[in-house]
Each structure stands twice: as C-alpha cells, then as structure tokens.
Amino acid sequence: MPEAVDEDVQLMLAFAGGDESAFDALFDRWAGRLLRFLERMVKDSAVAEELLQESFLRVHRAKDRYRPEARFSTWLYTIAGNVARNELRRPFRRSPHESTERDLEGDAVPLVLVSTEPATDDVVEARRQGDAVEVALAQLPERQRAALWLASVEGLSYSEVAEALDTTEKSVKALVHRGRTALARQLVGTPAEQPPRGASKGGVA
C-alpha cells in the first residue's frame, strides 16, 4: 500500500522545485536497489551500471513532468524497466555474462553475482541457496523475472508491477506465479509440475 507520505515523493517534488541536493538524496537512497534489479535484468554488472546511470538521467530530465500520482518506487522501476527492455531489445547486444570489464590478460571478467563476504556455516548454506536461486532466476523468461523480482523483492503490488511492466494485473499474477513456481522447482530439485516425460520421479540431487 502506498504510504500516506512517501518520503521519496517529497524529495522528488523538492528536486522538481529546483533543489538539486534532493536528486542526490534520491540517488543515494535508490541506486543500490535499482542496480540490483538491473543486474538481474541484463545479467551483466557493467551494463547494469550504464543502465542505472541512464535511468537516473531520465529521472533528472523528467523532473518538470513528474506528477506524484504513484509511489516514487513504482515510477522509478517503470523507468528502469523501460531502460532494461530497450537494452534487451537492442540488436547485436552483448551476450549475457559477457562483461565489459577486462582482466590483465584482456579476458572478460565474469559477472560475480554472489557475495564475497567471509563464510560461516550458516552463510555457506545461505549462499548455496542464494547461488541456486540466482542461477534459476537468470533462466526465467525476462518478464517472469521482472515481475517476480518487483513483487517479491521490491514489494510492489501487482497493479504497480503491471504499471511498471506496461501490462495487466492479471498478466502479472500469472507471470509471478509461474516464475516463483519455476524457482521453487529448481531449489527443491523436483520434477516439473507437468507430468514427467520419463519414468523417473522424485528428487534428483
């Protein structure tokens, strides 16, 4: 539910009124989360950083047109979603996982999506699950991935996700359901919902 007073909306209105520091504050509040979303969408951290920059540039340009009709986050994810979609539709786009970062040998540095913090046993188990979910998430169709992420992680309502992805609530409901179910299957390692083709049934480690 939208909060009665959306602090981000206040900042955006202040920015529209000429307060550049409000824009900086919005960037600092949202850049990390938006980058995390964009990384999941384009699967390349360097490209995601470019798209993050592009998204906030659009926010900056749109300040005169901004109307506080929705939560700021919905508006921001709509912009980022469009930016990501444009990138993914681009012909001759860099293939996923191909980073623009180069190591000393000139080879592309693979995107590291997992945490590099020191590991305790709990963290190891959490990371194992985290790695599995990242891999499974990356395999989801783009719209399922976006819808599930926005609903589950970013806490957007289905109507807000529908707005951000320019689709209907009904469609969002189906996308989120399919995406979440697919990930659950991957995490558990059980066969798909539909009748298995082979005779094998039960968990595959």
């Binding site: 995390r36 999506l113 992680v153 979440r180 659950a184």
Partner: peptide
C-alpha cells in the same frame, strides 16, 4: 523459500 532466497540477494555497492 524462493522469496527468502531472493530477499537474501545483497544490495550491491554502487561505484
């Protein structure tokens, strides 16, 4: 469990 795993994805530091 899916939601918990997704929620555990850390927010990256923005360079």
């Amino acid at each position: 469990r899916v939601d918990a795993a997704l929620a555990a994805v850390p927010v990256p530091e923005v360079p």
